[in-house]
């Protein structure tokens, strides 16, 4: 029966050091992206089987399409009417669960004009695979 020796201790120390690095980096970036700018415009996002609807701050409502302006900050308030969904704009790395009875928030600022896919990433039943919407970022 063998025993541990010094290479193993050094190896474990290196692993722990790398993990500390990973943890610190992740903490730092998470800290940055969670800081919501104060002038972010609130968009209410509601998921339901199987489409997305949006409400702007001025009361305009949209279904299946979301029109935003380039280089503005937006804060999504995401909720659901029936089961869990997940609001995802992969291109802008925006992702958060839509949970009934709960409002989750995430913010972003689109820096490119164009059309981007919005999809549901949490299994929600029959047409989950096609629960999509379109994000249209307009150059102002």
């Amino acid at each position: 029966m063998g025993h541990s020796n010094w290479p193993e201790w050094i190896y474990v120390a290196v692993v722990v050091a790398l993990l500390c690095y990973v943890g610190a980096e992740a903490w730092n970036i998470e800290n940055l992206v969670e800081h919501v700018p104060e002038d972010a415009e609130v968009i209410k996002v509601t998921g339901q089987q199987w489409f997305w609807s949006f409400e702007h701050e001025d009361g305009t409502k949209e279904i299946g399409e979301l029109h935003l302006k380039k280089d503005h900050a937006y804060k999504f308030e995401i909720t659901s009417k029936d089961v869990n969904h997940n609001f995802n704009i992969h291109e802008y790395v925006v992702l958060l669960d839509a949970v009934p009875g709960q409002i989750n928030t995430v913010w972003f600022s689109p820096n490119e004009a164009g059309e981007f896919d919005i999809q549901c990433r949490e299994y929600c039943g029959l047409i989950h695979y096609n629960m999509r919407a379109l994000l249209i970022v307009e150059d102002v």
């Binding site: 993990l19 990973v22 980096e25 903490w27 998470e30 997940n86 992969h90 790395v93 992702l95």
Partner: peptide, 16 residues
């Protein structure tokens, strides 16, 4: 798994 556990990366990888 280590890459995945870094919290901001969840925005990329979650349920994908």
């Amino acid at each position: 798994g280590v890459v995945n556990s870094a919290m901001p990366l969840d925005f990329i990888t979650h349920d994908s």
